[in-house]
Design a binder for these strands. Structure first.
Length: 175
DNA sequence: ATGACGATGCACT
DNA sequence: GTGCATCGTCATG
């Protein structure tokens, strides 16, 4: 749901105390050909059809992990977390990802999962319990929207959201 | 049983 | 900008 994806920009996401402010998200739902839930429930996407407020973690390109937050309302809706502003646990992030510039630690869905230590072990887990911690935003951010990244269907749906002007996005915002 | 294809990231030109 | 690693998942036969 796009409203949830927007609402998550500016919130803070931590896993075992490591993380930062969410600066980029994408929305997916069941009526969306780009969504893993489009073809109905399967073993992989089961968490998307489970209760809201849980994590959906999937493997991307056989290599990376990606984190989604499952939404309420119609089943099969979730928000992909695409980038964070690294702020807490920078030592842990660097030990997992190497001595990169801070701005590169969480810029991209696979990168942020590596930096935060997110794997399929967290698939289906509640987001309101350890190791997760979600902290509400303290100010109303200016949000830019545009087409989602890396999909071949549903390209016209502008369900990518980012903190306007941020240099921490996985790619510059367009649209 | 098998093949096509990724909600990506990195190295390289 | 381009090429490609790498393997689970799903659709098809």
């Amino acid at each position: 749901m796009a409203a949830v994806a927007r609402a998550l920009i500016g919130t803070t996401l931590l896993v075992d105390g490591v993380g930062g402010m969410v600066v980029e998200t994408e929305a997916y739902d069941r009526n969306d050909p780009a969504s893993h839930s489009f073809r109905g429930p399967t073993l992989r996407n089961a968490a998307m059809f489970g209760p809201p407020g849980h994590a959906y973690v999937y493997r991307s390109y056989g290599i990376h992990w990606c984190l989604n937050l499952v939404c309420g309302g119609e089943p099969g809706a979730a928000v992909l977390i695409r980038a964070l502003d690294p702020a807490f646990g920078l030592d842990a992030m660097h030990s997992r990802r190497g001595g990169l510039p801070v701005r590169d630690l969480c810029r991209g869905p696979g990168r942020l999962c590596q930096a935060l230590g997110i794997t399929d072990a967290l698939n289906g887990r509640r987001l309101d319990e350890a190791p997760f911690l979600l902290r509400p935003r303290t100010a109303e951010p200016v949000i830019a929207a545009g087409p989602r990244i890396g999909i071949s269907q549903g390209v016209a749906t502008p369900w990518r959201f980012g903190l306007a002007g941020s240099r921490l996005l996985s790619r510059p915002m367009r649209g």
